[in-house]
């Protein structure tokens, strides 16, 4: 089986126990305003264009059969609209200004790449983490990767929005040591407004993981101007309290790294705000800990 992968990141220390390799899968059902991996949204390959690195050689124009690349006085314009993500332009781009996000890989190719750090997993108790996008958007592929990783004896984690087919999620849970489960808004209205979909399914899925005895860390992006509200902080605490599967809560302060990625995708108007203050985060942490009885960290 193969799937669409947009990045494999080795030596990650912040996405589960020990030293890990994170596999980023393409495609996501949500459209969160602050998305920091916008190249993971679409399930198709996409070209990222970094104008700062372009030296204006023009090779891409010749390589593209659809005329997406335009040059005016060595100034390079790229039209995302109509691009089929064939990747031919990125292949000939000498400076790395053009790159292809999304590559079809077989499960065994991915596992082979992941297992390169096997000695480090063995020493540290680390392993593979699936991320995205929403890794369960390619559910069968994700499940196959998890099963194979388990078969190789390494630890497995999944970073999920929870917006997934319940049956598939539970199937994945059989091979998953730890879920990082997103909690982004409190209440359907807020969730629909910020993430483009209702929260109902996400909460139902969390309950199902709870009954199935999965291990979950609740991951909560704190985005000023979007969900940094008292109701939401209380919502986090209440959700954490209600589910015994949740061992800990992580508050993830909003950061601006997604903006430059959105620009490379030719998308303007990415969410921009000041990251929340350390002081505020610590206060939220205390509230969550006191009202949920669960440990809370700032990621």
């Amino acid at each position: 089986m193969s799937g669409m992968v947009f990045h494999i990141q080795r030596f990650s220390l912040f996405d589960g126990p020990g030293v890990r390799t994170v596999v980023f899968l393409k495609g996501c059902p949500l459209r969160c305003a602050w998305c920091h991996n916008p190249e993971g949204l679409s399930s198709h390959p996409q070209i990222l264009y970094d104008s700062a690195r372009c030296i204006g050689c023009g090779e891409c124009r010749a390589a593209c059969s659809r005329g997406q690349h335009v040059f005016r006085e060595r100034l390079h314009g790229f039209d995302q609209e109509g691009c089929i993500g064939c990747g031919k332009c990125a292949e000939v781009c000498c400076s790395g200004a053009l790159s292809l996000a999304g590559q079809s890989m077989s499960a065994s190719e991915v596992i082979e790449a992941v297992m390169r750090d096997w000695p480090v997993y063995r020493e540290s108790g680390g392993g593979m983490t699936l991320s995205g996008g929403e890794p369960l958007f390619q559910a069968d592929f994700a499940i196959e990767l998890l099963a194979r990783a388990k078969g190789r004896g390494i630890s497995t984690c999944v970073e999920t929005s929870g917006m997934a087919d319940s049956r598939k999620l539970l199937e994945a849970a059989a091979y998953t040591d730890l879920f990082y489960y997103d909690y982004k808004a409190t209440g359907d209205e807020m969730h629909r407004k910020l993430c483009g979909a209702p929260q109902t399914l996400i909460l139902e899925n969390l309950k199902k993981l709870d009954s199935a005895g999965a291990e979950v860390a609740l991951r909560c992006p704190i985005v000023p101007g979007a969900n940094e509200t008292p109701e939401h902080i209380w919502g986090i605490a209440g959700t954490a309290r209600k589910h015994k599967c949740i061992g800990q809560v992580q508050l993830e302060p909003y950061h601006r790294l997604g903006i430059s990625k959105a620009e490379k995708l030719g998308k303007g108007g990415a969410y921009d705000a000041r990251p929340p203050s350390r002081q505020a985060l610590e206060a939220y942490c205390r509230i969550v800990e006191e009202n949920s009885g669960k440990q809370c960290f700032i990621a």
């Binding site: 030596f11 220390l13 020990g18 030293v19 000695p119 480090v120 020493e123 540290s124 108790g125 680390g126």
Partner: peptide
């Protein structure tokens, strides 16, 4: 984790 990496 760093100790494990170095040991490995």
């Amino acid at each position: 984790s760093i100790a494990s990496t170095i040991r490995s």
